[in-house]
């Protein structure tokens, strides 16, 4: 007989809820986005579309308990050159508790209106999160697995107001996407600037679309890898005690506008977690902006 303790059950429930929430919503659309979890490319949301994605990270820090952290991302295409996002973060730690850990608001803007070999995107984010946040959406400074081992009761007392800036450079070359992100993060209350990086490359398994619509066609799959980590901070600009990960990626464009992504990440330094498993599930709503405009018209 399989015995599961209550806290682990809570962790499983939280992860499943995070994974399945988009399925509970109705209305279909389609998109073809890269299966990155940490890296951003220059691909923005189509104007008027809303994408809801859950990004779940599963890990176990040394000396700590299993952690399942989910970030729910609501991404809206304000303009073809401007995407705005809201993240709601939460996590469940086995033998501990399940907590809401905060929110993030971010904007990505393409300053150049044409496609170039290297396309810059400016990224600005405000984070209002507790130290118990374990979504690992970026790794900066001297972040390490010890940060994730603190009990929720202690970690959630520390609240962080942070600003994160990224310079995203991204290229689409011969069906490959290659993206480089340079990250600078600052706790607005105190602390130095912290730096990090994320590099990614992806490619569809087949370039041409098949003549027959098949959910299992190779053109529906995108594979790649990302490499990310911390680069120290302004007090200690060294690679000592920094975390670095390499993570293969696989994305699957499902029917009815859903997208599933999976990535096992492997820590490259002692400070890093040994492994981080990530699962993402996305669902895109078409032309949400138009729903409101139609409403306005009928109201007039």
């Amino acid at each position: 007989m399989l015995l599961v303790d209550a806290s682990r059950l809570s962790l499983i429930r939280c992860s499943l809820l995070g994974l399945c929430l988009p399925f509970l919503l109705v209305h279909s659309a389609a998109g073809q986005e890269k299966p990155y979890f940490v890296t951003y490319s220059h691909e923005l949301e189509e104007p008027g579309n809303l994408e809801i994605e859950t990004k779940t990270a599963l890990a176990r820090p040394d000396g700590g308990n299993h952690v399942g952290a989910t970030a729910m991302e609501l991404e809206y295409g304000v303009r073809a050159w401007w995407t705005s996002e809201l993240y709601l973060d939460g996590q469940a730690t086995s033998r501990d508790s399940t907590v809401f850990t905060g929110f993030r608001i971010e904007n990505r803007v393409r300053p150049l209106m044409q496609e170039h070999v290297i396309n810059p995107v400016l990224y600005v984010e405000y984070e209002n999160i507790a130290a118990s946040d374990k979504t690992l959406l970026e790794v900066v400074g001297h972040d390490g697995q010890s940060d994730l081992a603190a009990p929720n009761s202690t970690a959630r007392r520390e609240h962080e107001h942070e600003a994160e800036l990224r310079l995203i450079l991204s290229s689409n070359l011969r069906d490959w996407n290659i993206a480089e992100n340079f990250i600078a993060e600052k706790n607005l209350g105190h602390s130095p600037w912290e730096f990090g990086y994320a590099l990614g490359a992806t490619r569809p398994l087949r370039s041409a679309a098949g003549a027959h619509d098949s959910a299992f066609g190779l053109d529906k799959f995108i594979a790649g890898a990302e490499l990310y980590g911390g680069l120290g901070d302004t007090v200690s600009l060294t690679l000592g005690d920094t975390s670095h990960y390499i993570a293969p990626l696989l994305g699957w464009q499902l029917p009815r506008g859903m997208r599933l992504s999976f990535s096992p990440g492997f820590g490259l330094t002692e400070t890093s977690l040994n492994r981080v498993y990530r699962v993402g599930l996305a669902y895109e709503f078409n032309q949400v902006g138009g729903w409101f405009r139609s409403g306005n018209r009928s109201a007039q």
Partner: peptide, 23 residues
Amino acid sequence: LRQGDLAHGMPSWSSLPQAQRWQ
């Protein structure tokens, strides 16, 4: 299709594989 017209709301489809743009 590759360039789009970002200033007027048309996204760039450079993220689509080239073969799909030709299709």
